[in-house]
Design a protein around this nucleic acid. Sequence first.
RNA 1: UGGGGCGUCGGCAAAUGGAUAAGCCACGGGACUUUGGAUCCCGCAUGUGCAGGUUCGAGUCCUGCCGCCCCAGCCA
Length: 433
Amino acid sequence: MRQRRGTLTEPGRACAHRDRSAAESLDLFRRMRAGEFPDGARTLRARIDMGSGNINMRDPVIYRILHAPHPHAGAAWCLYPMYDYAHPLEDAIEGITHSICTLEFEDHRPFYDWVIDECELPEPHPRQIEFARLNLTYTVMSKRKLLQLVQESVVSGWDDPRMPTISGLRRRGFTPEAIRDFADRIGVAKRDSVVDVQLLEHCLREDLNRRAPRKFAVLRPLKLVIENYPVGQVEAFEVPNNPEDPAAGTRTVPFSRVLWIEHDDFRETPPPKYFRLSPGHEVRLRSAYLVRCTDVVKDAAGNVVEVRAAYDPATRGGATPDGRKVKATMHWLSAAHAVPAEVRLYDRLLTKPDAGDVGEGQDWKSNINPDSIEVLGNCWVEASLAGAASEERFQFERLGYFCVDPDTAAGRLVFNRTVTLRDAWAKIEQKQS
RNA sequence: UGGGGCGUCGGCAAAUGGAUAAGCCACGGGACUUUGGAUCCCGCAUGUGCAGGUUCGAGUCCUGCCGCCCCAGCCA
């Protein structure tokens, strides 16, 4: 058949059986259905126009033999219709008025209409209307490509939080509301387009910012010892659950002499514009106290393993009665009260915005980002997170939005990072390097 | 190259022959800030792929060109 189909510029040639009588064809068709022939031995074709510029009209196959079990019908049939033939029939029979599909089916539409006309289906006939598929930067959306990721174990499964599947997005912590909002904003058109994934992330942040309760979590812990804070003393500080929503109230977080802070929140030699902790500098520990760095403790290899600081008792709750300004406010956790957790950080699946942007002889998989997941096993979170339910969403202050992964079990908390917060410092730092 | 489509800002995307070509994201700047978050303000297409034409008036209509995408499965 392939040889007779012709090419894009040359018409096809008729097959030897093209003028077989209807009675003869019907008989053959019954025998096909009865299972008399092996796979591929016979087909039923629609006689249309072998000379058509549209290859889909060059006597397309409408039934082929496939001795394969059907998920619903089992072994009852060894005859399967082609999609192009079944689709218009299904639409017409089901009373579909507008049959929406993607652009690549545009030149299948003449056959879609042909089938419905020739079969004399009742009016009104369904109309196939094609629109551009949704493409997103830094990922793939085609089921075929997604299947490859699953089969080749690039991801852990269809619900891997990096997958743009419904189950993947859900496990990642995306809200239905954010996805709908995104869908509303991108519009529908016939133009082949690629939507910036940052728009999706924007919609997500906007939704989560409104709703997600705030928590403290330290992903890469660094010990901070408040030298002038009494050993054994514990204070409870009131921390707002969501500054966007006063009705969300406050919670209590314990403070003590030995704390965990984010490793990245300390630099021994701060780069320009770095406002966080560094020797001699003062920062605010959110809702607690202002502290000034007094000393740095290093291991034999010269790595910073502990930071020492002094707190100002007059700044209780993080207030500055004297009106003094500090440029940085940091999250923290009392080491003795924090709960351990595993946190999984995700990055884009691809290293390039467009999966198809590849060099000679390369396929799209050469663009797979080898660092799309990072598992942090040594994190600390607030004790209030201990009983969190699967899929529950939170903002870890200053870090991003996170949700509880179903891998969470008694005594083992696992969080997925849904999306980071916007990060002005990261941009400054990037420009500096 | 035969057929089918599509060209409006960095990315999406409105504008149905009529006012100065919407809006959102991104980006840049500023204000404010107990999250470098959030919020607010400002900037961001002398021009709609190009060249002509019609018209009082063209992103929109006409002609020609250019560019990009899809089709040669007994896949969907």
